[in-house]
Design a protein around this nucleic acid. Sequence first.
DNA 1: CGACAATTTGACTCAAGTCAACTAGGGTGG
DNA 2: CCACCCTAGTTGACTTGAGTCAAATTGTCG
Lengths: 226, 226
Amino acid sequence: MSSICLPLAISDEEVDRIDRIVERGRPLRRGDHVFRAGEAFESLYAVRSGAVKTYTLTEEGEEQIMGFHLPGELFGMGGLSAGRHPNSAAALETSAICEIPFARMEPLSRDIPGLQRHLFQLMSREITEDQQLMILLSKKSAEERIASLLLGLSSRFKQRRLSPRTFRLPMSRGDIGNYLGLVVETVSRVFTRMQRSGVLEVAGKDVTILEPERLAEMAGTRLEER
Amino acid sequence: MSSICLPLAISDEEVDRIDRIVERGRPLRRGDHVFRAGEAFESLYAVRSGAVKTYTLTEEGEEQIMGFHLPGELFGMGGLSAGRHPNSAAALETSAICEIPFARMEPLSRDIPGLQRHLFQLMSREITEDQQLMILLSKKSAEERIASLLLGLSSRFKQRRLSPRTFRLPMSRGDIGNYLGLVVETVSRVFTRMQRSGVLEVAGKDVTILEPERLAEMAGTRLEER
DNA sequence: CGACAATTTGACTCAAGTCAACTAGGGTGG
DNA sequence: CCACCCTAGTTGACTTGAGTCAAATTGTCG
């Protein structure tokens, strides 16, 4: 099971060792927090089922969502360097989370060379994703932002062997807007527009991508560039 | 001298050891690259004089500036985890850069406990800054963005014991716009507007902050929020 | 079955982008 | 040393994508 949490090419015996330090259970309900900004960093977390958002608060107390985390994905490593979590993490729907105490992981990572590298890669991937998001926020239109988000989700579902064509959005329109720097109304309008143009089939949180190629086109270059 | 590059509470002897591995010289001219995206990560860099921008290219080949680096600041640690630089770094004006070969630094960091922590803190600060930028990009108006940038620069100049009130912008209007997700014309207009309202004195790249309090106000909450 | 929250839709506004023309600097070669 | 050229910056007129406000509709959970 923890092979889902930490997909990595290691021996059964090693899986076992990791398995023993992973703490299970902890079923969370929509809105429950996994951790809050400022708390000491003690564990990494993996989504077993459900979905999680990580966010910070602006000086004015508004929420800014930094990322969504789907089953099989790790989160909470933002605090690794600083020793405390720079942002909060809350469940988007009923979720099962596994906790991986970091202190017990460090000795392991000495014995399993792949593990250390794997963690570094995860951190670096997070930085890359942040940068992608910055580009999205600074240069893309509402349509491009939403197309990118949908394609990203689609490919992540595919990785987890779920349908990349049809899936249920775990987050609200408000969350999508917050994440992408748009207001709810705009998110809603773009969804209906995409539906009308036949690219998507949308029914509440259930989305079907009818024309992936066209969606990809929409996510990319928009006329003439800037 | 390297105490400027790595400001850190360590003994003279230790400064000496670090000093010996820092490579000097390398005067760069406007537009010259320190490193390019994709190159192997081998060193950290510090700005001795001048200024540097780090940027990535979007899929469409446009530049997206990720940060500006002033004298005394380290840059290029984005590649630390991945092993290769995720973005490029170019001089904004004639600059002197010191290079700190990372391989020679690692043994040192075992002996100097503060050093390792210092590096982690730097990485974590970079992540925090990226997140601040994301909030800026997703929630703030043109005026707020520029006010924030100016205040940020001001406080960084102050840290380096330069005037926080009067300074020369090392980057072009175009670079500012690119960084903040605005077009040049907007940047230019906001500058003139701030000048007319008496908050700033602007003459080309020379800026004087006349009313810091008002600028800070502009950087913060803008009517009613979102 | 309500009651409240989330979503959608329409009408209107406005901040920032686009296009275009003009001006000011900065650096180079004669 | 200065004329010229090229790039950077400014300004104005106009357009537009996304935000705001408001109202209707749907969904959801206790």
